[in-house]
Amino acid sequence: MRRVAPVLALLLLCGLSACTSEAEPEEGASTTLTVLLDPDVTTAQKTAVEQRLRAMPSVADVVLKTRDQAYERIREDSPDLLADVKPEHLPESFSATVTDASVAEAVNLVMGTVAGVEWVGLTMAEADPLPTRIGAIVRLEPTVTGEQRAAVEEAVRALPHAESVEFEDRDAAYARLREQCQGKGDLAAQLDSRMTRPSLRVTLGMKGRGETDLPGIGRLDGVEGLHLVPVAML
């Protein structure tokens, strides 16, 4: 994964990591899917990515975001992340809403294998106010060592608002996702066991807890990705 993907991933996380809310939990809230394209993506690949995304079950509001739009968002929200990054260094991307939490993770994994895609992320769809509880999926690398996993789990459990932390191995993840995708078009058939990863699945109680170092968790050795999602996805 090139430099720009982690930059944008951190941007997606930073917006939620400092938020609190007085609302009741919206465990079934929609999820935003962000699909970053390879910098050298071809026109044909971009078209194929969009068509594949629009064909996914429960996916709506597919929008192409340009490099300039990505740059402006970073400049406005987190200018310190820009450093030497220029608009031409940033990838184009598609954003979409996944309205069914039960298929969002499978859509994320399948879209990550499409030619021309660099990275796919999940975040809570924007809501005002945010729910008092959200989920975090800390996806581990397939080659994560026992020592690395233990260090990541220790860091996650040390978060002041971590209410529960559960480990799921990749075989269990594959079985769960296959079951959840039954009756959702051909999504189950598109899944492959090689797509899944071991993960820590965390419930975060955000009400009145203030800031937390969620982006820091994403930078730990052995972590492949970090996604903030509705609790229903856990």
Rank of each mutant, 00 (worst) to 15 (best):
D213K: 12
V229H: 04
D68V: 12
P57D: 15
V110G: 00
L234K: 00
T99D: 03
S193Y: 03
E168V: 11
G112I: 07
A189R: 13
K207E: 14
S30Q: 12
R52W: 06
S93E: 06
A9T: 13
A115V: 08
A9D: 07
L37K: 11
V223R: 00
S102D: 10
M56N: 04
E88N: 15
T99W: 11
D221W: 02
R209K: 14
V202A: 05
P131E: 01
F94A: 09
P160I: 02
T123N: 04
G208N: 00
K86R: 15
L187H: 07
A83F: 05
E72H: 05
Y71N: 08
G225R: 00
A125G: 14
L226M: 05
V202W: 03
K86M: 06
A188P: 06
R219S: 07
A55T: 02
A173Y: 02
Q45K: 14
H89M: 11
A172I: 15
R176G: 03
L228E: 03
T113N: 11
T20R: 07
V7A: 11
P129Q: 07
H161W: 13
D169F: 09
A55L: 07
P131C: 02
R73M: 09
D213M: 13
R176P: 06
K46V: 12
R75T: 00
E141I: 06
M1H: 06
Q51N: 15
Q180V: 04
L10T: 05
E153L: 09
L11T: 02
R52S: 15
A60S: 08
L10K: 14
H89C: 06
L234E: 01
G28T: 10
E22A: 13
R197D: 09
V156R: 09
L187P: 01
L214W: 08
D84S: 07
T113D: 11
L220M: 09
E166S: 03
A173Q: 00
A18L: 11
V114Y: 02
P230M: 05
D186I: 15
L12S: 15
E26W: 12
L82V: 02
C19S: 08
Q69I: 12
A127M: 13
V120E: 01
G15M: 05
G121C: 01
E141F: 11
G222D: 06
E141C: 10
S199R: 11
V85K: 06
G216L: 10
T66H: 13
S21N: 04
L82D: 01
V110H: 01
E224T: 03
R201G: 08
